[in-house]
Nucleic acid binder design. Structure first.
Lengths: 215, 215
DNA sequence: GTCTATATTTCGATAGAC
DNA sequence: GTCTATCGAAATATAGAC
């Protein structure tokens, strides 16, 4: 209260700059990796002088950690499934949601992948804390479906890995997919085709029927 | 002939050093990314002075290109399938081979993934040349199986993406999988479980029976 | 709060003795 | 063919004027 009162206008400016920096940082970290990214590139893409980046985020690592943290939270909020749904509805909706995230947040997905691939040096605590709890919970849901005879008795854990791998592949390996698509990004129709293909294989693979395809 | 005759012993020394450098480089590039990797780290891991690395490989990029090229060739040679096999045998063996590669060459897989994720700046020619041809060939094989009624009419292209994504996930996201396994690497039995789980889901998903599970 | 100028460190690459 | 010493470039981070 007693220190540096900030007007609404200044507060907005601060939020806008932080947002611009995080937006730019996500793209630069995704394209160059943590080691290849430079504060200068982030500053240029954000349209700010380099020193301002250091004003809002003291170190490169602090900025990076904020970027990874944002991505992780988006995933947790946007993509989940619980026992109230049937396997076909639950898993089908999860595939749709994760595929949509790969399309709308490809840079974030790549930053996460890079971080994990290099041993998660910055966000190991997220893995050991939130991700383990989330995963064990989903395994429980799937196991319940199996116990009720609603789907084939496959390994819930490896089903989750297959779902993560496949849906994130469309973001992380988007450049390879684009190259194999005559250098063009996937069209709306091609994204629909991708989602339907993944759902067809997986839902048939676990012994349930795709609810959007009729009986 | 007229220039610097090389004894067999010297030739061996050269091959051994090159091998040691490539071995170390694969690990350092995998763990730190291209930008994060340093010639000093590679030299230390290879047990050679830094200047020697530059003697055998003039630039960092040249060394990196050799590493990526090696990995790509290993994949092409070790993992393939053709029309002589049934879908269950062909795809099943392909899953086994790719899973084994993920276990035996996890660093190489991560280097490849990093390279593609960052837009394949160094090996785009491989993607546009060899990979496109390989992929179109496999799509033809799968389409023939479908046309003969040997498997469900899913999209061959997206089946390939699912197979790449899932099998490579066990290498690229190996750290995450290890964290979700109480910090322990997968045991022999757990690797078998992983392979069988992937095969069970995929082979059922494309409408064929796992040949190793009987009818 | 902003930005220019610079300090400090580190890396890729090379020169030159052996 | 090997290795020590070092150069020059580039990066992170900060000091200090505005």
């Amino acid at each position: 209260m007693a220190t540096t009162p900030i007007s609404g206008r200044q507060k907005n400016r601060r939020q806008e700059n932080e947002k611009a920096i995080l937006w730019a940082a996500e793209r630069v970290f995704a394209e160059a990796g943590y080691g290849g990214a430079t504060m200068q590139l982030i500053a240029d893409l954000a349209g700010l002088p380099k020193a301002n980046i250091h004003y809002y985020f003291q170190t490169k690592e602090e900025l990076y950690r904020r970027v990874v943290s944002n991505i992780f939270n988006i995933w947790l909020e946007a993509a989940a499934f619980d026992e109230t749904a049937s396997p076909a509805e639950g898993i089908g909706a999860y595939i749709d949601a994760k595929m949509d995230l790969s399309r709308t947040h490809p840079h974030g997905s790549r930053v996460w992948a890079s971080e994990v691939m290099h041993g998660a040096p910055i966000i190991q605590d997220y893995l050991e804390d939130v991700l383990i709890e989330w995963t064990e919970g989903r395994i429980g849901v799937i196991q319940n479906w199996i116990d009720q005879g609603l789907m084939n008795p496959i390994s819930p854990r490896h089903l989750l890995y297959l779902l993560w791998a496949t849906t994130q592949h469309y973001a992380d390996f988007g450049h390879q997919i684009e190259t194999l698509n005559n250098g063009e990004p996937l069209s709306d129709a091609q994204w629909e085709d991708a989602k339907n293909s993944v759902k067809a294989i997986v839902l048939t693979g676990i012994g349930v029927t795709d609810p959007h395809r009729g009986v």
